[in-house]
């Protein structure tokens, strides 16, 4: 079992690295359309988010529908840091790395604070409350105005005029218009590195004393308490790590756009559900599946663009097919047979 886990981990890393190599080769030989090139960073963003949520859903066993909200926090704190320190920190790379740390930490902090009341609930109740928190985060950011002049910082939740900035003052967060002028620091390489780091963290975390404690709560909370597992602590820890990864994804997302706004499209519950779809279709508790599902389902609508009207129809069919392939007992049996055949063939050679 130890070896199986290690093998699984290494296979995942190899797949991600191989995918990266293929994309780089395509880019170098100029065989990639600009449309696809534009999707590379979002692919990493959604993979990260799906990995984060899978930790929460698959290992902690709690359904969160608010992960887009935590992504939103990461995006805005990261972008805010980058914009405000543009004059102070010259190097774009250093600024971006610091923004990543800050965005991740802020998302983790909010995740932690929200988890304290929320994790007293479970099941459907928890899902609904996290959904509400996600929406609250998005809506608060939509009415937030932050600016700075010689007097110092000004904050308002009504309008930009209320900030009362002196001439020459700068508005950093402009309500529904969000943050503009975020540097374009994200690229595919950094995205892939972040995905690899996230995978490293979640794989090692789940295969450790901490991970076993987290999974014991998922499997049977009463039994976990009866063997002295501090259930509250490990629930909080699992949830916080999960939100931190969503926050990292947010920073990556924000630094790929020049204008960052909190719309229902990118940080609303639709996105939360979309991430959950990646997790469920990729396999609950299967991080590699999350990454693959996130990539396929993000690419698919774009690749099918030529089919215009039939696009969403095919997309829906693919969703159902993936579901069957991953979860139907017959399909699982079929897959195991294929794998067994390959192994046998390998030995004969």
């Amino acid at each position: 079992m130890k070896n199986k886990k290690l093998k699984n981990k290494i296979t995942t890393f190899l797949i991600v690295i191989a995918a990266y190599a293929i994309v780089e080769i395509l880019l170098l030989t100029g065989n990639m359309s600009s449309l696809l090139q534009g999707l590379l960073v979002p692919l990493c963003t959604y993979s990260l988010c799906a990995v984060g949520l899978n930790l929460c859903v698959g290992y902690l066993g709690e359904l969160s529908l608010g992960h887009a909200g935590f992504m939103c926090i990461g995006a805005f704190t990261g972008a805010f840091f980058s914009v405000t320190t543009a004059d102070v920190i010259q190097s774009d790379t250093v600024r971006f790395l610091l923004a990543l740390v800050i965005g991740t930490a802020c998302a983790a902090l909010f995740g932690f604070l929200i988890a304290i009341p929320v994790l007293r609930l479970n099941g459907d109740y928890l899902a609904i409350v996290t959904l509400a928190f996600g929406e609250i985060i998005k809506n608060v950011i939509n009415v937030l105005y932050v600016g700075k002049d010689s007097q110092g910082w000004h904050v308002s939740i009504n309008s930009q005029a209320e900030l009362g900035l002196e001439p020459g003052g700068v508005t950093y967060i402009n309500g529904a218009q969000g943050i503009t002028g975020t540097p374009h620091s994200s690229n595919f390489t950094i995205g892939v590195i972040l995905v690899l780091i996230a995978l490293f963290v979640v794989y090692n975390l789940t295969d450790s004393r901490t991970g076993r404690a987290i999974m014991s709560i998922r499997d049977n909370q009463i039994a976990a308490e009866s063997v002295g597992i501090n259930v509250k602590k490990y629930k909080l820890l699992g949830f916080t790590v999960s939100t931190a990864i969503a926050g990292t994804a947010g920073v990556l997302y924000a630094h790929n756009l020049s204008t960052l706004t909190a719309l229902p499209k990118n940080f609303g519950y639709n996105m939360s559900i979309m991430i959950l779809v990646f997790v469920v279709l990729g396999g609950i508790g299967n991080f590699r599946g999350s990454v693959i599902a996130a990539c396929i389902l993000t690419l698919l609508p774009e690749l099918l663009r030529g089919l215009s009207d039939y696009r969403m129809l095919i997309y829906a069919v693919v969703l159902i097919a993936m579901m069957l392939f991953n979860w139907a007992p017959d399909a699982i049996f079929f897959r195991e047979q294929i794998v067994a055949k390959f192994k046998k063939g390998g030995r004969e050679v």
Binding site: M1, R212, A213, D219, N220, A223, A224, V227, G228, I229
Partner: peptide, 20 residues
């Protein structure tokens, strides 16, 4: 009430949680 999705060994290791 076992931790059903985990191996036999891991079940016991969860019992050892507070001592190792």
């Amino acid at each position: 009430r076992l931790f059903k999705e985990q191996t036999v060994l891991d079940n016991v290791k969860i019992g050892l949680h507070n001592h190792y």
